[in-house]
Amino acid sequence: MTEKIAGGRRWPLLLALLPLILGLAVYGQLWRGWAAQFETTLAGWFPGQAPIVSGFPYRLETELAGVSLAHDGEVDVRMTAERLRLNRGPWRPELTVAQGEGLVLAAALPGLSPRITAPAGTASLKLSRDPRGQTRLARLSIVLPGASGSVGLASEGPSFQADNLELHAREIEPAGTPAANDPSLPPRGQLVIGAQGLRIGAGAAISLAGEANVRGAAPLRAWRAWAGTGSVDLAISGRDATGELFALAASLVPVGSGLRLAGTVRTVCPISVQAALAGIVPPAEQRLRAPVQLAIESLLPAGDAVALRGMPADLATRPRRGQLPACPRLR
């Protein structure tokens, strides 16, 4: 009799658990489908790799070794990593997060060939689709502690090191068709740069904040199509613990096989800025009380051939901030 009662109690319990068991089975099938899609995506991103996704039930995750990613063309972009861990949420195929070790990022375009290395770093990649169904870069954020490398002007110099380097890029879809009489070109993309403890060559550590806004009649997907009308608006500032050292406002325009840089530099340390551009050791300089604005122009790649005009003739007699630390060596 006791066995019958116990058996009768089991059935209500099993019936109560049945929806949960069925739900887990259905979710397991859905998760396996999401994992297969992620594996297919990663195999397309990293040819030669055979990713296996794990992380059930909360995430999709895989780890790859000896990773290499490249885009060849008029603009070459390359990334290598000794080890790379990638993951995304089961319901968020548009967002991928990565942690890497032994990282190398490099690009080659007319006028510039930057290269960055870092022992480790993190990144998040968010993609979206426009009304025409094309995939667009909604956001790419990269954080690289202990980064080093070079901007990649002529003769590879100067080199740099940074305690922390951040890069944030996005593709911009113009809001509408610009008017025929509108002289401004529609925005196509943006790159935001932040660096702490940045040392250029043998220069002192400074903080750098920069923004590059890409404009053009054509999207920045094929260099030749974009370069006919394209330009890049630059805004870069550098500061130390005492305050702002310089602020660059300039434009980059494709010219032949290079880039033409033209704009202005506002600075309280004009001699130090001039020495940094020339690649020489600056003399001792106290900060100006009021910044001066200088014109800057160069054709990249041009090494040290950077024209800086507008240095005031009365610079030696201008008021200085003697109570503040002297201008740091910038390069």
Rank of each mutant, 00 (worst) to 15 (best):
19 P>H: 03
274 Q>R: 15
283 P>L: 09
1 M>S: 13
180 A>L: 08
120 A>C: 04
243 G>Y: 01
33 G>Y: 11
283 P>R: 10
303 G>P: 04
54 S>L: 09
324 L>K: 12
253 V>T: 15
207 S>T: 15
197 G>S: 13
177 T>H: 04
283 P>K: 06
191 L>Q: 04
10 R>L: 15
50 A>D: 10
204 A>K: 06
105 L>Y: 06
68 S>N: 10
291 P>S: 12
6 A>Q: 13
129 R>M: 13
121 G>S: 05
120 A>E: 10
226 W>R: 00
262 A>W: 01
311 M>K: 06
54 S>F: 10
151 V>C: 08
78 R>V: 04
113 S>L: 01
215 R>H: 15
292 V>R: 09
120 A>W: 01
275 A>K: 03
70 A>L: 04
67 V>G: 02
226 W>G: 00
220 L>M: 14
59 R>C: 02
257 S>L: 10
85 R>C: 05
89 G>I: 00
227 A>F: 05
164 N>G: 12
254 P>I: 01
16 A>C: 08
80 T>F: 04
276 A>T: 07
221 R>D: 07
169 A>T: 01
131 P>R: 11
132 R>C: 02
138 A>L: 03
163 D>E: 15
244 E>D: 11
70 A>R: 14
95 L>H: 12
327 C>S: 06
205 A>P: 08
33 G>A: 13
306 V>S: 06
288 L>A: 13
102 G>H: 01
27 Y>H: 05
218 A>I: 01
153 L>C: 01
260 R>M: 04
322 G>T: 14
248 L>N: 09
104 V>L: 11
135 T>G: 07
255 V>E: 08
37 Q>A: 15
120 A>Y: 05
